[in-house]
Amino acid sequence: MTVRRRAALTSLFAAIVLVLSGALLTAPASAAAAASRDGVCDSGEFCYYYNSGELGSVSDFTGSVSDYGTTEPSCYDFKGAGAGQGLCVKNNAASVWNRSSQTVRVYYNSGYAGSYQDFAAGAKGNLNATLKNNNASHQFLSSTPPTGCTTDGTNTKLPTTILVYRVSLGRVDRVDFETYVKNVLPNEWISSWPAESLKAGAMAVKSFGWYWALHSTNKTSGGACFDVYDNTSSQVYKPGSATTATNSAVDATWGTRMTRGGAILQAHYCSTTTACGGWVTGDWMSQYGSRDLANAGDSYSTILNYYYDNITLTS
């Protein structure tokens, strides 16, 4: 059975178990943004304003976002007081203040695509006629981003982006890697599960994506390179689905890598022992098993070592 087929079974069996148990694999009704987003344009942040001239409600960001989402309450929204508060940022911003130390590029399309406008560090200004109320993603340009089929990751360095095939949309998006992981985890683990289970899941999701960012040779029928599918053929990626609990798990483990023999582990996972009993023991993790071990008091590192043989966790 191929790895892609295994990953597909992971999500399929997880869905079956959840339906039978009456549980719903949905994100709690909370904003997708991290807790640091408070509707105040602080030093180091890039901020959208609902109105021109830096007026109205504010939506503040500390990093790149490839898709803001379009449905409340899971979208990135305007948080500050004033006109526009609570509305989704996507296609609703009129001006910006870049209080970061990097140039920030605002794009017309999701996935850092289409027409764009650059705002230098410290700059304030209105979005131009093309981008006003037509903003779909933004990117901090600390260096020249990878293009084409390339990735800048290694076995010791996280990739900055990952190429995601948006199957239903028929296109490939280059997604900020952290944004990708944060918008996969709540679709593969249940956000209300114990924190240590979510951290174990965050490590598996990150490692699986990291591995394929380094090794994939996939191409669409049109010849476009991509690393992972956005569905059960790889891991389920849904822009705007991140939750506070899953974001915290990703943040807590972001500086840790999981390797075997010095190489990033292609971390397989599945819902239960019964669902994936034919897999080789030591090469995959049970999602529900991680929940049970966390409830018993085990740390995420203990959980990972319980399921994956001969791994090294390095901070």
Rank of each mutant, 00 (worst) to 15 (best):
A83K: 11
L158Y: 00
E72I: 15
G63L: 11
N128R: 05
S115Y: 14
H138E: 09
W97L: 01
V58E: 11
L127H: 01
N91K: 06
D60H: 08
K90D: 10
L87M: 08
N91S: 08
W97F: 06
V106E: 09
A121L: 00
S137P: 05
A94M: 09
S59H: 08
Y112M: 00
A83F: 11
N126M: 04
G63Y: 12
L127P: 02
G148R: 00
T150P: 04
N155C: 10
G114F: 13
A93R: 11
V89F: 04
C149P: 05
D60P: 12
P146I: 04
L87N: 10
L55F: 09
S59P: 11
Q117N: 01
Y76Q: 13
N155G: 10
V164H: 12
V104A: 01
Q117V: 02
V167W: 13
F119P: 02
G125I: 02
Q85D: 03
K79Y: 03
S57T: 15
N135D: 12
F119R: 02
D118R: 04
N155W: 12
S95T: 07
G56T: 14
R166Q: 15
T70K: 12
S143V: 04
N155M: 13
I162S: 07
V104D: 01
L55Y: 12
L141R: 08
A120F: 04
N128M: 05
G80T: 11
G80P: 07
T130V: 10
T161S: 14
A120N: 14
A121M: 01
K90Q: 14
G111S: 07
T70Y: 15
N109A: 11
Q102V: 06
A136T: 06
N134F: 06
Q117R: 03
G111W: 06
G153P: 13
G111N: 09
G63Q: 15
F119C: 01
A123Y: 00
S59Y: 08
N133G: 03
A83E: 10
A121V: 00
T62Q: 12
D67S: 09
S101P: 03
D152P: 06
Y112G: 03
